[in-house]
Design a protein around this nucleic acid. Structure first.
Lengths: 191, 191
DNA sequence: TGGCTACATTTCGGCTCCGAACGGTCCCGC
DNA sequence: GCGGGACCGTTCGGAGCCGAAATGTAGCCA
């Protein structure tokens, strides 16, 4: 990743390459920092506490959500985890094949599928969650409680901004034009 | 994703499920916030400025690094982007097939490969980078410059902690045991 | 009953991603 | 010169990931 010392230098270099066009330096540095931190934390956790039980980050988060919420509908789990429903199907398949998660039909509405942990899954989470939290404490070890709260609050504003005005912003950027479909993804069938 | 209002509530619920084991609440909330923010920003940008040129987040970051640094060796690009060398090979193949990036042998060292943008790639980045920066400004719109710097500094500490003590921490967690290979990935050949 | 709309999950193509294995290149000491 | 180790990029298997299409159920109304 980019060397932190050279953040300012990089910002100036970008302005030069753009022919003097002004750049939002602080904002650029923060966005870069968010992704650097997310990647560093994720990688550290995957290579420590999640390595033994052979869980990916996403698989763990799925289990965590179901563990905390109890039996849940898949659409809610996908939203909380922050992945698409299609992705969740695959992750659930993997976890179910390992006997950690169980799917069940909704008793009243046949369209819904409910997720819940198996006994093995409960036992696993009882062990892994404390270890996971210990790594959360480790990675934030250079921040005291107040600084954690402060950083979390500032990040909460970023999330809030995107969630409340993101869709509006995206449509205004397009200016009424078509959303331009992704080149990847399932193709239209003949028609 | 998890409703921000219920972060405290969730923390208490986790303690209950763990049978009263104490939990680092602030640290848990910050780590969750980092990933929420990263996912929100990434998704917003991919669905706005990166949608037209049909670039994924990773593909854009690769182009950005090469654009800023100029001709670069692949190993440095992979490290700065924060992806493995194997992943970079695939991303570069995609970008090269679209005529945005070009690979060249290193004149002196036959093991190395150099990356540089094509004229099309340069032109594309000249258009996209300002738009990208505008979205960085949008997502951080609820923070002033000082708050951006503050948040970036706190995140920098998280990254620094993981980068300087992460490896040490991981090996001490294992307590001398084998790192337990990932179940996925290429299998050992017969031996 | 039949049809129609709404909604939820699954399927599928194309890509990213990791990390072990692999083959090529460099370089050091003999 | 010539091993042999160290380094580099690529290949490959398994899994994650998105979003559009396809499938299937619910519920309404004529």
């Amino acid at each position: 990743m980019l060397d932190q010392r050279s953040v300012e230098e990089t910002g100036r270099l970008v302005e030069v390459k753009l022919g003097g066009l002004p750049v939002h330096h602080e904002q650029m540095a923060l966005v870069a920092g968010i992704h650097r931190a997310a990647a560093a934390v994720r990688q550290h956790v995957e290579n420590s506490v999640l390595r033994g039980p052979d869980l990916t980050w996403t698989a763990f988060v799925v289990l965590w959500v179901v563990w905390v919420r109890g039996e849940s509908e898949t659409r809610h789990v996908a939203e909380e985890v922050g992945i698409s429903k299609g992705t969740l199907t695959g992750v659930v398949r993997t976890l179910e094949s390992r006997g950690l998660l169980r799917r069940a039909d909704h008793p009243a509405d046949g369209r819904l599928v409910l997720l819940r942990l198996t006994a093995d899954g409960e036992a696993l989470m009882g062990r892994v969650v404390p270890e996971f939290n210990a790594e959360e404490a480790f990675v934030t070890g250079r921040l005291d409680d107040a600084e954690c709260r402060c950083a979390a609050e500032l990040l909460r504003r970023v999330v809030g901004q995107v969630e409340s005005h993101g869709a509006e912003r995206r449509s205004s950027l397009l200016g009424g034009a078509e959303p331009a479909p992704r080149r990847s993804g399932r193709r239209r069938s003949k028609a």
